[in-house]
Design a protein around this nucleic acid. Structure first.
Length: 405
DNA sequence: TCATCTAGCACCTTTGAAATGT
DNA sequence: AACATTTCAAAGGTGCTAGATG
């Protein structure tokens, strides 16, 4: 394919008016929709746990998004990173998540650059963009380029799209950032919530052996009483016809699942009976309780543009009574224009780190972005403030600190 | 004592090269 | 000879478990 536009490597985007751009105006705004929405919603309802290991663990459900609105003949870089949702560490007590204390010191964030990057808009729009090779680790000394997270902390993946002809020439402004409320998870080194375990076993092909009766009997390990009970319950659930129906086809799209939605659905809040203990969360961190949320609307979800960098994704959609309410599964994704300051970090090859790998010497410097000078636009939209309690400023989270594949 | 983490296990799917067929 | 299809082994992903760690 011929490169139509040469030298155009930066789509200038006005920080305060993230609409009109040379790239997007002709083809409409860039939009993203989350694939496997129903699966994500199931996990969200139970309070998603994502296993992280020292050697790196893939995510399940997989992060897969469908992009549209890109200019087919322009090249884009697509990446993902992870944003801490708050400043707390959690623990699993009495079948629910509770705040266990202050969060660990933040690690230098890493971004996973999709291996296809950079690619033409037509390529990204051709099929859903899958981040299935992305791995999460709790190893702070990881040299493999995996995403480093703290266990027992709450994160949300964020997807970024930027127009760039190559990885050396990314303009550090004009990022389009997408995040989806139902993808919030707590990172764990071992499953705590058996409902999540069951969901994973039921839906993950690699765990097929665990859901097939009889196979487990080959194991010679002796089970502790509580663990034995867990397994028994799981076997019972797995053998029920209902359990078999819960699986989704691999590439099920939003449209498929929505077409059969019977109507309004109630979603349990993240700390509902199966999720986080609401009482354990400090008052200024709580979401509004979910009263009723409309079922997901059919089709892809249009981009939700934040003109004013609203206070929190959890309160982005005001209710009919004017009160803020959490954005729940089926709601529109959060889309942010990340203006940046066009000051690129150290350049590095497409297969090398853009920042040095984490080392104790590096400290938390990457995370402590000094406040912008008076009158200067903030580098990234702020999520702090009373509405979101201790949620850190997004500006603290590097967009592009490490390339992983 | 307890919560959390780790390594190793058995079992599974995925992947890609080699073999075979058309 | 070129291409398509099938086969199969290796690689890698999964949750489970006991023991280690702090």
């Amino acid at each position: 394919m011929e490169k139509v536009v040469l030298g155009l490597t930066c789509v200038e985007m006005e920080p305060t008016a993230p609409r009109g751009t040379a790239a997007s105006s002709a083809h409409g705004p860039i939009t993203a929709s989350l694939e496997d929405l129903e699966l994500w919603t199931q996990f969200y309802q139970a309070g998603t746990e994502m296993v992280i290991t020292k050697s790196g663990r893939r995510m399940f459900p997989q992060c897969k998004i469908r992009l549209s609105g890109l200019v087919p003949y322009l090249k884009y870089v697509v990446l993902a990173d992870f944003v801490p949702m708050d400043n707390f560490r959690y623990k699993w007590t009495k079948d629910q998540w509770e705040v266990a204390g202050k969060a660990e010191p933040q690690l230098p964030g890493r971004s996973y650059i999709h291996p296809d990057s950079p690619a033409y808009g037509s390529h990204w729009m051709k099929e859903p963009v899958s981040f299935h090779k992305m791995k999460l680790t709790n190893n702070t000394l990881d040299q493999l380029g995996h995403i480093i997270l703290h266990s027992m902390h709450r994160y949300q993946p964020r997807f970024l799209v930027v127009q760039a002809d190559d990885l050396f020439n990314i303009c550090w402004r004009g990022f389009q950032a997408f995040s989806f409320p139902q993808t919030v998870f707590i990172s764990v080194t071992a499953y705590q919530n058996e409902q999540i375990t069951k969901l994973k076993i039921d839906n993950n092909p690699f765990a097929k052996g665990f859901r097939e009766q009889g196979k487990q009997q080959r194991r010679t390990h002796r089970l502790s009483p509580s663990q034995g009970q867990k397994r028994k319950r799981r076997e019972e659930l797995a053998s029920s016809p209902k359990a078999e129906k819960s699986g989704l086809t691999k590439d099920e799209t939003v449209q498929v699942q929505d077409s059969t939605s019977p109507g309004p659905v109630r979603y349990a809040p993240f700390w509902g009976p199966l999720g986080l203990s609401r009482a354990s969360v400090p008052a200024n961190q709580r979401e509004e309780p979910t009263r009723e949320t409309a079922a997901p609307t059919p089709g892809s979800y249009p981009a939700y543009r934040f003109q004013d960098y609203g206070p929190s994704i959890w309160e982005a959609a005001p209710g009919s009574d004017g009160r803020p309410r959490p954005v729940l599964p089926g709601a529109e994704p959060e889309v942010r224009q990340l203006p940046g300051d066009c000051a690129p970090p150290d350049k590095a090859g497409p297969h090398g780190p853009l920042y040095p790998p984490y080392s104790p010497e590096a400290g938390s410097g990457q995370w402590l972005v000094p406040a912008p000078a008076h009158g200067q636009p903030r580098p990234f939209p702020s999520l702090d403030g009373a509405a979101h309690g201790g949620t850190p400023d997004w500006g603290q989270y590097p967009l592009f600190s490490y390339a992983c594949w």
